[in-house]
Every structure is written in C-alpha cells, then in structure tokens.
C-alpha cells in the first residue's frame, strides 16, 4: 500500500474504496532505454498493457518479456497484485537465443 493511500485511509476511509482502482502511470522501458508510458487502472490485468505495447511497437507478444523488479509478469498480474506504485517502471526484454559463438 502506498503512503498516499495510507494517508487517505487515516483521513477518510470512503475515498480509499474509490481510489483502490484509480489509474496509475506506468513506464515501459527497453534495455536500450526507449520509454513508452501507459495509464492503467490498478485492477486491470497487465496482459492488456502487454498486448497494447506489443501492437504499438509492432511485435508479437510471445517474442517479448515483461519484468517487474526482475520478476516475470504473469498473465493474471495487475498493478495492485504486484503492489506497483504510480510512475513505476516495467522492463521489456526481447526473446534471447543461443547455440554457439
């Protein structure tokens, strides 16, 4: 839970219920530093964001990987389930292969 939410909870418990699904800003960053910004509700599945990102950059979802704090983001994850905060960052990586030098 963010500090902001905690503050609101102590002040007035009613807006907290409304805030639970308030949209947050999320930055998707490639390892070469390119950034794309999204606004997404806290209870919306991140798979939606992944699909939106993939179509924006013209790639198949199956060829890119989304990481939050080094952990792979799964189908059912939401910003709320991952305890993401406003202006948090998701790393996007591309499929890696190898066989020999």
């Amino acid at each position: 839970m963010s500090d902001q939410e905690e503050q609101q909870a102590t002040q007035d418990p009613v807006p907290k219920m409304e805030d639970a699904n308030a949209p947050i800003n999320i930055k998707v960053v490639t390892s070469s530093g390119e950034e794309v910004f999204f606004k997404i509700k806290r209870n919306t599945k991140l798979s939606k964001l992944q699909a939106a990102y993939a179509s924006k950059v013209g790639k198949e979802v199956s060829s890119i990987r989304f990481l939050y704090d080094g952990n792979r983001i799964n189908e059912d994850d939401t910003p709320a389930s991952l305890e993401m905060e406003d202006n948090d960052t998701i790393d996007v990586m591309v499929e890696q292969v190898g066989g020999s030098a």
């Binding site: 390892s31 990481l67 704090d69 080094g70 792979r72 960052t89 790393d91 990586m93 890696q96």
Partner: peptide, 21 residues
C-alpha cells in the same frame, strides 16, 4: 534470469535498476 546480464551490460546497475532485483 538471463535478463540480468543483459541489463547489467546494456544499462548498468543504476540505470538498469538492478537494486530492485
């Protein structure tokens, strides 16, 4: 994970936010 090395080399510790890992 395999992306650790990529981030370490491409972005470094701070830019790659590896402290979070």
């Amino acid at each position: 994970s395999t992306f650790f090395w990529t981030k370490l080399v491409d972005q470094g510790y701070e830019m790659g936010r590896l402290a979070k890992w």
